[in-house]
C-alpha cells in the first residue's frame, strides 16, 4: 500500500469510529440528529445537551488518550529495542495510581486533587526510575528497564497496602474502579487540560520524527553519527511520560492500547518508522473509541474500559504473533 493511501485509510477509519461512537450510547443519537445539531443548530434540548456536554467531550477525550498512549508505547518500543514494552514500563501508571489512591484516601478524593496527585505521581515514578537506572549503571537500556520493574513493584506494593487500609464499604470500590479506567467522568475542563498537555507533545514527536528514528540504532552508533543520545533518550522518556500521565490521570489506567496499536500498524500496514509513528495515533484512537463504545453500551450500566482493552489486547496479541510466524 502506498503511504498516502495508508494515511487516508487510517483517517477514514478514525472518522468512522468517531461517528459510530458519537451515535451509540444509552441515549442513541441518529446521524440525522447529529447533523442537525452540528450544522443547523436544531434538535431536542436533551439531545443537544447530551451531544455537546457528554458524548462529544468524551469521544474527543478518548481520541486524545488513545493517540497519546499509542504514541508513547511506540516511542518506548523503539527506544528500548523491545516490542513488548508499554508506556508504563518506567512506572508511570503505578506512580499515577498511588497518587490517585492517596488523593482518594486522605484528601477527600475531589476529582481535581485526584488528577493532580496522579499526574504528579506518574511523573515522580519516572524520575525515580531514571535516578535508579543511573545508580544501577551498565547498559542504559537494560538499567532503565530494571529500574522500571523496581519502581513498578514498589508502586504495586504501595497500591496493595493502601487498598488493605481503605474502607471496604466506601473507598475500596472507588480505588478499584479508578484502577480499571473509565472515561465516564470526563467533562469539558478535563478535556481542555488533557488537550493542553497532549497536543503539544504529539506535535513535538511528529515534528522530530526523523530524529527519534535514531532510537532504533545502538547507543554507540547513534553517538558516532553525531546525535546527543542522552538528550534524545531524555526527550523520548519525557514526552512519553507526559503523554501517559496526562491520559492516566484523567481516565485511570487504560491497559494494552500502547502495546496493541503500534503492533497492529506494523503488521497490517507493513510500515516504516515514520509511517508507524504517524499511523499509530489514529489507529490507537480508533481502537480506544471502539473499546469505550463497547464499554458503555454492552450492558445497562457502564463497565470499565480496561476489561475491553485487555480482552481485545490478548486476542490481538495472539493473532499478531500467529500472523508473524514464519516472517523474518
Amino acid at each position: 500500500m502506498k503511504t498516502s493511501k495508508k494515511y487516508l485509510f487510517a483517517s477514514l477509519f478514525l472518522l468512522a469510529c468517531f461517528v459510530l461512537s458519537l451515535t451509540l450510547g444509552r441515549y442513541p443519537l441518529s446521524l440525522k440528529e447529529i447533523f442537525a445539531i452540528l450544522f443547523l443548530g436544531q434538535g431536542k434540548d436533551v439531545a443537544v445537551n447530551i451531544f455537546y456536554n457528554i458524548r462529544l467531550v468524551r469521544c474527543l477525550q478518548v481520541v486524545l488518550c488513545g493517540a497519546a498512549l499509542s504514541l508513547a508505547g511506540f516511542l518506548y518500543q523503539s527506544g528500548f529495542h523491545n516490542a513488548l514494552v508499554s508506556p508504563d514500563t518506567l512506572g508511570v501508571s503505578g506512580g499515577a495510581s498511588v497518587g490517585a489512591i492517596i488523593a482518594i484516601l486522605y484528601f477527600g478524593g475531589s476529582p481535581v486533587l485526584r488528577q493532580v496527585f496522579s499526574f504528579a505521581g506518574g511523573i515522580l515514578a519516572v524520575i525515580v526510575s531514571l535516578l535508579l537506572s543511573v545508580l544501577i549503571g551498565r547498559d542504559r537500556r537494560i538499567s532503565l528497564l530494571l529500574a522500571g520493574i523496581i519502581v513498578s513493584a514498589l508502586a504495586n506494593s504501595a497500591i496493595m497496602a493502601f487498598k488493605y487500609l481503605a474502607d471496604p464499604a466506601t473507598q475500596l470500590a472507588v480505588i478499584d474502579y479508578w484502577l480499571m479506567g473509565s472515561f465516564s467522568l470526563i467533562d469539558k475542563n478535563k478535556l481542555l487540560i488533557t488537550a493542553v498537555i497532549i497536543l503539544p507533545c504529539l506535535l513535538l514527536v511528529v515534528l522530530f520524527r526523523y530524529r527519534f528514528k535514531a532510537l532504533l540504532l545502538s547507543e554507540e552508533e547513534t553517538r558516532a553519527l553525531g546525535v546527543d543520545t542522552g538528550k534524545l533518550y531524555l526527550l523520548c522518556i519525557g514526552v512519553s511520560t507526559l503523554l501517559t500521565a496526562a491520559s492516566v490521570s484523567m481516565s485511570g489506567i487504560v491497559s494494552w492500547i500502547g502495546l496493541l496499536a503500534p503492533h497492529i500498524v506494523k503488521t497490517v500496514f507493513r510500515s516504516s518508522f515514520e509511517e508507524t509513528l504517524l499511523l499509530c495515533m489514529p489507529i490507537g484512537a480508533s481502537l480506544l473509541l471502539l473499546s469505550d463504545t463497547v464499554a458503555r453500551t454492552l450492558t445497562m450500566s457502564e463497565i470499565p474500559v480496561s476489561i475491553i482493552t485487555s480482552l481485545t489486547g490478548a486476542v490481538f496479541l495472539f493473532l499478531f504473533l500467529y500472523l508473524k510466524k514464519g516472517r523474518p
Binding site: 515534528l207 522530530f208 520524527r209 530524529r211 535514531a214 540504532l217 553519527l225 553525531g226 518508522f273 515514520e274
Partner: peptide, 21 residues
C-alpha cells in the same frame, strides 16, 4: 529492520534540522 536508503541516509542525521528527513 529499516529500509536500506533510510539507514544510509542516517549518516547525515546530525547535519539536518531536527524536523527534516
Amino acid at each position: 529492520s529499516m529500509p536500506v536508503f533510510d539507514f544510509v541516509a542516517m549518516g547525515r542525521i546530525a547535519r539536518r534540522d531536527f524536523f527534516k528527513g
